[in-house]
């Protein structure tokens, strides 16, 4: 039988995995889609923040949080379009444009988001899946936002489509070898722009989750680099949408360790518990890279793995 403290920490990690993981999941899926086409967009943090602001603003003005989600997706699509078009010009570096657009996206979000820091916008309602339990902590952990399930559904769909559909094949081919894509009559520029736009839109939805669900508020400190870390998760997940789900869940759970341990009285070194997700990721990367797995599953045209 588990002691109450261990149970508390485990429930908190379960809840944390579900609550904290969703923005990571959306950004990671968006980045997977983009990188599968052979391009990297390091600027999805900008999409996340702009998406969060737009979602909050639209939800506040219309009273419809789901319209906010659409608006966040739109903002993400827009930044993705900018990235996609600019990077399809010859000799333009996609990593640098990503970082510049991150600055532009967050700048725009902060500039236009000023009036929305104070008011309360309607939030997305969670689905109460823990009603069967008498444990309030477990009930709370199982109060799950529909966006979480949407993210998992998109991950499964993406995984299936990449392997089994013609668009999936074209996307993978473009990412692995531009020359063979051209030989098949595929326009790699168009494929990459579409993949970057779609990936940007997904990252925007991740932002909507931050501002409309958890923590469910808009301010300039809302994202503490989740968008940047999610890009790291993609390599960690070896460009596989299903592994993105596990990676995001792991990251969310690791993020909940710090507060959860403190709540049961273990507070020594909380700085390192708070850094747990990063330490964990690094160790898993080292362990998995030794087997040479990352290099094998990486899209061949991707600038950072060349």
């Amino acid at each position: 039988m588990l002691s109450p403290e261990v149970l508390t920490v485990l429930i908190a990690m379960l809840g944390g995995a579900i609550r904290v993981s969703t923005p990571y999941l959306f950004v990671a899926l968006g980045e997977t889609l983009t990188e599968k086409s052979g391009r990297i967009n390091l600027g999805l943090e900008g999409n996340l923040v702009l998406g969060a602001m737009m979602a909050y603003a639209v939800s506040f003005h219309t009273g419809q949080p789901w319209l906010g989600v659409l608006a966040a997706c739109g903002a993400g699509l827009f930044l993705g379009l900018l990235h996609g078009v600019i990077c399809s010009l010859p000799r333009v570096n996609d990593i640098a444009v990503g970082i510049a657009l991150m600055s532009f996206g967050t700048g725009a979000a902060f500039f236009f988001g000023k009036p929305y820091i104070q008011p309360q916008a309607p939030r997305l309602e969670g689905l109460a899946l823990g009603e069967w339990s008498s444990n309030p902590a477990l009930k709370q952990a199982l109060l799950i936002n529909p966006l979480f399930f949407l993210g998992i559904a998109i991950a499964v769909l993406l995984w299936w489509a990449l392997a089994n559909t013609r668009p999936g094949l074209i996307l993978r081919m473009t990412g692995d070898s531009e020359a063979s894509a051209r030989a098949m009559g595929v326009n790699p520029v168009r494929v990459r722009i579409l993949a970057t736009v779609a990936g940007g839109g997904l990252a925007g939805i991740g932002g909507a989750f931050l501002s409309l669900s958890y923590p469910g508020s808009w301010n300039e400190g809302l994202s503490s680099g989740q968008g940047l870390m999610a890009v790291a998760l993609v390599i960690f997940a070896r460009w596989n949408p299903l592994r993105c789900v596990w990676a995001a869940l792991l990251f969310g759970a690791a993020g909940a360790i710090g507060p959860a341990l403190q709540s049961v009285g273990i507070s020594q070194g909380y700085y390192f518990f708070n850094a747990a997700p990063y330490i964990l990721t690094l160790f898993i990367m080292i362990a998995s890279a030794r087997a040479g797995l990352a290099a094998q599953s990486a899209p061949g045209e991707l600038s950072i793995v060349k």
């Binding site: 609550r19 989740q226 909940a256």
Partner: peptide
């Protein structure tokens, strides 16, 4: 904000 929400929960 995210960690504040985690801590509050």
């Amino acid at each position: 904000p995210v960690r504040e929400a985690e801590a509050a929960n």
